[in-house]
Design a protein around this nucleic acid. Structure first.
Lengths: 274, 274
DNA sequence: CGCGCCATTGATTGCTTTCAACGATTGTGG
DNA sequence: CCACAATCGTTGAAAGCAATCAATGGCGCG
């Protein structure tokens, strides 16, 4: 009986995410959850960790969106990792003493910390814990690699479409999605800084996708009318997120095109046949 | 006394690299070295692992250069990770059953394998082993993040300069560098596929750097006349590679600009002062 | 000697950036 | 209730970096 999803103040996206590793037991998850300390709210646009900072704790994002980023000499910002509810802000902190990128919030957040020493001890007693953390790192790595592919070889349109797909799947793990969409707290400048695009171009690409009917974006509310079609445009294949068969979300099964949560409610007719 | 650098057929770049984690003992390194099996030569331009392949072993590159890559629908290739002597081709294999990118050689290589199950058992007995592997993953992650920054916000010139700097430092760890340079087995198309540039543009940028006197590249032999200046152009700071103080290379100390191995022999006068 | 691979070069096209301005929205204080 | 500032989204025009297309030269090898 997992309680990590109940509403009794025990909703823990971090544990929900870890469970997806498939190599950690409920008992181990509970112990891990008890190790979370110093739960606190953080304002939007606030640095949790400065670049090169030293820390002996893992910072876990329990709510809100954050990012890892670096500033270049000319003042430009590049976001290297988008952090969603349940993500660890500095997973490398387990193995390296200085974080190499700054971590900042993009929306109001709730964070907690996990002591590295304690965690290492726990991992020795419970191999499943260490393995789940390793899995987390592997997924982070794969996500970064996929971003590299976007920045290296995809057009602005492809990059944005791909990011929007990825976010849907990642958010779905912790139940932070709606019907066929989610709340996107990012401003267009943030999206540009993730994908290596200018704000202006980001704006134009988003409008293009809107006019094509591929996305619906009003204010912060984002919807995907036709998931398979957006995936096709994005060349999005969720394999790299290693989420298994994507069951346990809405009971959605894998689709012909690729494991897809939204496919549970094919909202629009005329799905693009492969 | 570490024997991993002697010439008695015991040169093992994998162990040399692991040692840099600073959290693994010589005894543990020896045990780990004994676990390497099936050492074999592999031709250039050969896939070691197909995309989505399943494997229960870590593939360790003992000599030569390889890469992780994906092919896009339009036939374009994006290399996500460059693998140098001593690197693990599929580190994520420890935590995930299907690799998400293909692994292919770029030059003639020597590879060996490490059984994941055996490795996990070893790691339980020797925490230093697990930690060193985690460190390896953290560095890989940071490298990927730095690449993201290049692709997202740096010009072609900056990207290539940065890559050339990174390769020098990474190669220096295993002693695969010469005076102030190294052998670059990549063809220009490979470099372009790493950095998201076309072959033609890669060529022009390289020529530009040559004409500026920033690099010397004749055939496969690459030299850096003025390391600090190239670092400056690249905005290269080796922090993210987490190699400590870069001692033990040529006895070089950290320079004012950043830890730099080549600075041991400041080959050219008139270093660009910050 | 001819083929194949690779580096190089020129010309053209175009996606994206940059610059600049304006409209929309929100929150605040008078 | 309205003025006002600040943030964010949108639009137009111009400039630029890099891609694409096409072709040539160099070099190693069978």
């Amino acid at each position: 009986m997992s309680a990590h999803r109940t509403g009794d103040g025990h909703h823990n996206p971090f544990l929900m995410r870890l469970r997806r590793s498939g190599t950690i037991g409920e008992a181990e998850l509970d112990v891990l959850g008890d190790l979370l300390e110093g739960r606190r709210p953080v304002n939007a646009h606030t640095d949790l960790l400065a670049q090169g900072a030293r820390t002996a704790q893992l910072h876990v994002l329990l709510d809100g969106w954050a990012c890892q980023y670096k500033l270049l000499a000319d003042g430009e910002r590049q976001i290297t990792t988008l952090l969603l509810p349940g993500d660890v802000c500095n997973l490398d902190g387990l193995y390296v003493d200085h974080v190499n990128a700054a971590v900042g919030t993009l929306s109001p957040c709730t964070v907690a910390t996990l002591d590295c020493v304690t965690l290492r001890i726990l991992a020795r007693r419970h191999p499943g814990v260490g393995r789940a953390l390793g899995w987390l790192g592997a997924v982070e790595n794969a996500t970064l690699a996929e971003r590299t592919i976007s920045l290296g070889r995809r057009s602005g349109r492809g990059r944005i479409a791909h990011l929007l797909c990825e976010l849907f799947v990642r958010l779905a793990v912790t139940g932070d999605t709606g019907e066929n969409g989610y709340t996107l707290p990012l401003i267009q400048a943030d999206v540009g800084d993730v994908l290596g695009l200018s704000t202006v171009h980001t704006n134009r690409v988003l409008q293009g996708l809107r006019h094509e009917g591929l996305i619906v974006l009003k204010g912060r509310e984002f919807h995907i009318p036709d998931w398979p079609r957006l995936c096709e445009v994005a060349e999005f294949r969720p394999d790299y997120l290693h989420l298994g068969e994507m069951d346990g979300l809405d009971g959605a099964r894998s689709s012909a095109f690729g494991a897809s949560p939204a496919v549970a409610r094919p909202a629009s007719p005329g799905l693009a046949g492969g």
